[in-house]
Design a protein around this nucleic acid. Structure first.
Length: 894
DNA sequence: TGCGAGCGGGG
DNA sequence: GTGTACGCTCGCA
């Protein structure tokens, strides 16, 4: 039997593990294979006490001498290790802790590989790949699908995907006390909406209601319990592979589990009957495991995508942006009334829920949200349930496959103490990051600016210089490459490192897929594209992994060698280009160079860009510098903050204003700021008319002073998430909510309401001066124009205007000295309301940026973002340093 | 400037 | 589940 591998787990039978592989046959049927001939094991580096200790631990059923390479530095000979086999996977942590405590081993390896992955790696099985199962049909009640007792299990090469069944669902709940947030222990689910692809019994959607109701695709029930029972029945009957819904991981699924418990209903709706569905909580994010199915949360996928950023991530914003579709308009605070109201009210509530479920499913299906993750699963070997996490697990499971093939062992997960030691060391010694060339600041309008960048720079550097944990030389004299940071890597003729080897496979595979894509069409082309994106993601993440303190293969010298070669390469290339071509390098960052030309003709500029690309690439040999695009005009404020009027050629020229590190939309900016900023940038870049830009700004300031800006343009909207007394600090919209409640005790703002506010003049602190725009209009109150000028408009726009040499005098120019003088004098006062531009949202586009921070060369002060002046407060030059972690906590100096 | 609390999405 | 993990922004000292 052939099946595509969807999920895996194991259960214990007489204290021995039985692996279960859940899959889909070619016909799209669900099946499960059982395999009981595989036991957990791990490796130790033995010492004089080992033999005795092993003898005394009865759980160890066998001990085998074995030769394996360890990946910390180049080793000519394998190490002599012991492979210890036990029976119950759950005993492994205890037994390895015991061996370590007794100092009965010198080292331990692979003692924390999840059992399902231990099995999969040893059988060369990867998630979403095909598996050949030889064996007999077996009768069991532990799984809900046909089961096979397998005598052998092996990987099969097959490209097609089996058809999958998708179900999205969305629950609606009513709080019993509308002044308090929802409480899953008390507040019932009243509606469950579902959406299916393919259809379920001729239904695209189905809505269950916990009170009598009727209608097309609507089913009423006596109470919550009866409705939940039907929901479980539908899941069982439809048997979805993918369960999805917006934010289901941290809302709908945990809430549903709690309600099932409260109603004394079973929590079994996966494909096995012996393990309930459960939610794991870590920090803030939650994840629900439904054995044998895949939980997909489009919210988490969209939010974590480094390539696409939205300013909000609620379903309405996302659906509008990705589907051109909006939610039905129902406020949380209306829901209790709709639930208790007329038939029409209830119907509106039902249709609201139905649409949410339908939109969530459309996001996943129409936006092909899973294509890339299916490929990541196949490439890394992770099961679908785990591909939505971070890069670390992907890399480690992928490497585990490669390690096994090449007789290497994987170090164990980094202990807490080692993590903090690495953090301290890194903090002290630092890790130099990439070069960011000093920008030729200001506006470049005369000639075109060419943008060129190195293709897969870090992966290719690793290949070119054989940079890898297992090729790093720690002693001995061998033929080697010496990196600019002093690290030595053995010549690849003697030993090719595992990282370069894996990267070569990934990059070559990507190149051949890109070739296939040229002639492919439709579905086939889409899958190829998803695969090349997945390959790119994984190859780009390997460098970051080597400097991530929690990585099993953390090697600071390896990470340092990569960036050192990168810096050397960028400087060299800059020199070469400036010597050979009539261009000036105006900026460059890590792997990119921006070259200013004297050419005003796009076609000529393109020709020059391609010529430079060819010349540099052929000189460098193993690295390719590609011509990307043209900025007809280019404005750079500081390192990492710039905007350009971009032109790309794809049969014809296309143009667009492109911004990096400059944001025009932020949640805490009123629409006036976004609009003015866009207008000014457009004028500067497309018209190059400074006077017009200044006049535009001045015009807005004056209108503000004269109260001529419509209130909508000044309104910031924020939602109330809990009752006012539960807010600790002072927030404008909460203060406003209190005021509104006092004014109108019969219609207080409720949890879930969204309040728009403007800031009015007065002597109280800012938050107390938040006011309802309608109230302001009615009572003809004065808005606080100083606030809007100082705290909203001026900070971002002043940075742009000043960078292009607009002097303060010029802004003062016309006859409004006194008022605008106030603004200028206010620059020092501004710190209080200063709004930092956050470029991380835009500039996260490169995965690499997640790993960077900025360290002063002179005083070693570190910054998470490039300061606005482009240098340290002490005046020293800032180097991009390597953060090597996703948490900003670790960046901070002690 | 540094720290700690609180929020996001969902109802 | 051979677990144990966010990242950013704001107010306040």
């Amino acid at each position: 039997m052939l099946m595509q591998l969807l999920d895996a787990d194991y259960f214990l039978n007489a204290n021995k593990p039985v692996v279960r592989l859940y899959g889909k046959t070619e016909n799209g049927n669900s099946v499960c294979a059982f395999y009981d001939k595989f036991l957990p094991y791990f490796y130790v580096r033995p010492n004089s006490k080992t033999a005795e200790a092993v003898k005394n631990i009865r759980e160890i059923v066998s001990s085998e001498e074995i030769e394996k390479f360890t990946p910390s530095g180049y080793q000519a000979e394998p190490a002599k290790l012991l492979k210890l086999t036990i029976t119950n996977p759950q005993d492994v942590p205890r037994i390895s802790a015991m061996l370590l405590d007794q100092k009965a081993v010198d080292d331990i390896f692979e003692n924390d590989i999840l059992f399902k992955y231990r099995f999969m790696v040893d059988h060369s099985l990867r998630g979403m790949e095909w598996v050949d199962v030889k064996g007999q049909k077996t009768f069991t009640k532990t799984v809900t699908c046909p089961a096979y007792g397998a005598s052998s299990i092996s990987a099969v090469n097959k490209k097609e995907n089996a058809g999958l069944r998708y179900m999205a669902f969305d629950i609606e709940c009513i709080p019993s006390d509308i002044t308090k947030p929802l409480n899953s222990k008390k507040d019932p689910i009243v509606i469950i909406a579902m959406s299916f692809t393919p259809r379920y019994k001729n239904h695209d959607t189905l809505v269950l209601v916990a009170k009598p109701a009727s209608g097309q695709g609507t089913q009423g029930f006596q109470n919550e319990k009866a409705m939940l029972e039907e929901f479980l029945k539908i899941i069982s009957a439809y048997d979805p592979d993918i369960i999805t819904g917006y934010n289901i991981n941290s809302f709908d699924l945990p809430y549903l589990l709690e309600r099932l418990g409260q109603n004394k209903l079973p929590k079994f709706f996966g494909r096995c009957n012996d393990k309930p569905v459960f939610t794991k909580t870590f920090g803030i994010s939650q994840e629900t495991v439904i054995h044998g199915r895949v939980v997909v949360d489009p919210y988490q996928i969209i939010k974590r995508d480094p390539w696409v950023k939205f300013y909000r991530y609620n379903l309405n914003t996302i659906a509008k942006a990705l589907l051109g579709e909006e939610k039905l308009d129902v406020e949380y605070s209306e829901m209790p009334d709709l639930w208790k109201g007329s038939r029409e009210d209830l119907n509106r509530f039902v249709e609201y829920a139905r649409k949410d479920a339908a939109i969530s499913l459309r996001l996943v299906i129409e936006r092909r949200m899973l294509d890339k993750f299916f490929e990541i699963s196949k490439i890394s070997g992770l099961l679908m349930q785990d591909v939505f996490g971070g890069q670390t697990m992907r890399i480690e499971v992928m490497l585990l496959h490669e390690f096994r093939k090449r007789r290497f062992v994987m170090p164990s997960k980094t202990s807490r103490t080692t993590v903090s030691r690495r953090e301290k060391e890194k903090d002290k010694l630092g890790l130099k990051g990439a070069t960011v060339l000093e920008p030729k600041k200001g506006l470049h309008t005369e000639g075109c600016t060419l943008v060129l960048d190195f293709k897969s720079l870090y992966p290719n550097l690793m290949r070119a210089y054989n940079i890898s944990p297992d090729s790093l030389l720690t002693g001995g004299s061998f033929k080697c490459n010496i990196a600019p940071n002093g690290a030595k890597f053995i010549d690849k003729e003697i030993h090719e490192g595992i990282f370069p080897l894996v990267l070569t496979q990934l990059l070559e595979s990507r190149e051949s897929i890109k070739k296939l894509m040229k002639t492919a069409r439709g579905e086939e082309k889409r899958i190829l594209n998803a695969r090349q994106l997945a390959l790119k993601d994984i190859s780009n993440s390997i460098y970051g992994y080597t400097g991530y303190v929690r990585a099993r293969l953390y090697m600071i010298d390896v990470a340092g060698a990569i960036t050192a070669y990168g810096r050397e390469n960028l400087e060299k290339t800059k020199k070469t280009i400036e010597e050979k071509f009539p261009v000036e390098v105006v900026y460059g960052d890590t792997d990119s160079l921006l070259l200013k030309t004297s050419l005003t003709n796009l076609d000529e500029a393109k020709e020059l860009g391609e010529k430079i690309s060819k010349a540099v690439s052929s000189e460098l040999g193993n690295l390719q510098l590609e011509f990307q695009k043209i900025y007809r005009t280019f404005l750079i404020l500081t390192k990492k903050r710039y905007a350009g009027w971009k032109f790309t050629f794809d049969g014809e020229w296309k143009d667009e204003i492109e911004m990096k590190g400059i944001e025009t939309i932020r949640r805490d900016w009123c629409p006036l700021v976004s609009q003015t900023m866009k207008e000014i940038l457009d004028i500067i870049l497309k018209e190059g008319d400074m006077q017009k830009a200044i006049a535009t700004m001045r015009n807005v300031l004056e209108k503000l002073k004269r109260n001529e800006i419509p209130l909508e343009m000044l309104t910031v909207i924020k939602g109330i998430t809990k009752s006012p007394e539960n807010y600790e600090g002072m927030l404008p919209h909460i203060e406003l909510a209190k005021k509104l409640a006092e004014r109108n005790p019969h219609d207080k703002p409720r949890i879930g309401d969204r309040l728009g506010f403007v800031i009015i003049k007065g002597n109280q602190i800012l938050s107390k001066r938040a006011e309802d725009p309608g109230y302001v209009k009615k009572h003809n109150l004065q808005i606080d124009s100083d606030y809007y000028i100082h705290s909203q408009l001026f900070p971002p726009i002043e940075r742009i205007l000043v960078s292009i040499g607009v002097t303060k005098g010029e802004l003062l120019g016309s006859g409004h000295q006194s008022s605008i003088m106030d603004i200028m004098n206010g620059t020092k006062r501004r710190t209080k309301h200063e709004i930092n531009i956050d470029f991380s949202k835009e500039d996260d586009k490169k995965a690499l940026d997640d790993w960077e921070n900025f360290v002063c060369q002179k005083c070693s002060k570190s910054y998470r973002r490039m300061p606005l002046q482009g240098s340290c407060a002490c005046g020293g030059e800032l180097l991009i340093a390597y953060q090597g972690s996703v948490s900003n906590r670790m960046v901070r100096k002690g």
